[in-house]
């Protein structure tokens, strides 16, 4: 579904991504792992059109989306849960969710807004109780749920998730990852997930890619990565 080919990104003199290639299969969860500064966030931001690569390309179902501005990418079925979640704290929970259908035309919006809200609230009952509250009153876990719910409101074919576990209690992380797993099973959602917390990410992923200093150092089935001792010690820290 998603194909990243020899992507290179530089911030000034700093090379953030160096010839990174990977593929994400339809209906799979792919986890990109690596330490701080490995280029994980840059990878997602480049796929999403927020960062322009120096070279290389990003293909979504065979269509080149490398130079597409971020505003257009959502229209092709790509939704992003950014680093730090990107919840707009000055808006209510429901308005944050409504952002997910804003790009649609009036007719589609009418048709999808209320069913989308119902689905998200069914998935995350904690959000339903707080729908009229400002998002700034939410806990970290609830904000993560809101960010994921908002991305799901766009009815994405591919969900990009940046460090969902960051700052969350292990129990909350497990809960959120379980929801991803469920969505994959039930709706065939495809997920590209970026994580520092390799152990929990590999527990839900089908495929894992390890980045180090902007380069792919390993790419394999999640189960094999989780048991490759040398890799775990060198890059994954568990």
């Amino acid at each position: 579904m998603l194909e990243v080919r020899e992507l290179a990104v530089s911030y000034g003199m700093v090379r953030a991504l160096d010839e990174v290639s990977l593929t994400v299969d339809q209906g799979s969860i792919t986890a990109v792992l690596g330490a701080n500064g490995a280029g994980k966030t840059t990878l997602l931001r480049t796929v999403n059109g927020l960062v322009r690569p120096r070279s290389g390309s990003v293909l979504l179902d065979g269509t080149d989306i490398t130079r597409l501005p971020v505003e257009e990418v959502v229209r092709l079925g790509l939704a992003h849960v950014p680093e730090g979640r990107g919840v707009i704290t000055e808006l209510t929970v429901q308005d944050n969710l409504r952002l997910g259908v804003l790009w649609r035309n009036r007719r589609e919006r009418r048709a999808l807004q209320s069913t989308g809200l119902d689905e998200v609230y069914a998935l995350f009952p904690a959000l339903a109780e707080r729908r009229a509250r400002l998002a700034e009153t939410l806990s970290g876990g609830e904000r993560q749920m809101l960010a994921i719910g908002r991305a799901l409101m766009t009815r994405p074919r591919l969900l990009l998730l940046d460090e969902p576990s960051l700052g969350l209690a292990p129990r909350v992380t497990a809960q959120i990852l379980a929801v991803l797993r469920e969505l994959r099973e039930r709706q065939g959602l495809t997920v590209l997930l970026v994580e520092q917390n390799a152990r929990s990410a590999l527990s839900v992923a089908d495929h894992g890619v390890v980045l180090n200093l902007g380069r792919v150092v390993a790419s394999d089935a999640a189960a094999s990565l989780a048991t490759a001792d040398d890799l775990r010690h060198a890059y994954l820290g568990f």
Binding site: N48, E71, E72, V74, T89, L99, L102, W103
Partner: peptide, 13 residues
């Protein structure tokens, strides 16, 4: 409030 997030959701800022 958040131009970048708005753009991610298709808002032509």
């Amino acid at each position: 409030f958040s131009p970048e997030v708005a753009r991610m959701f298709g808002v032509r800022v």
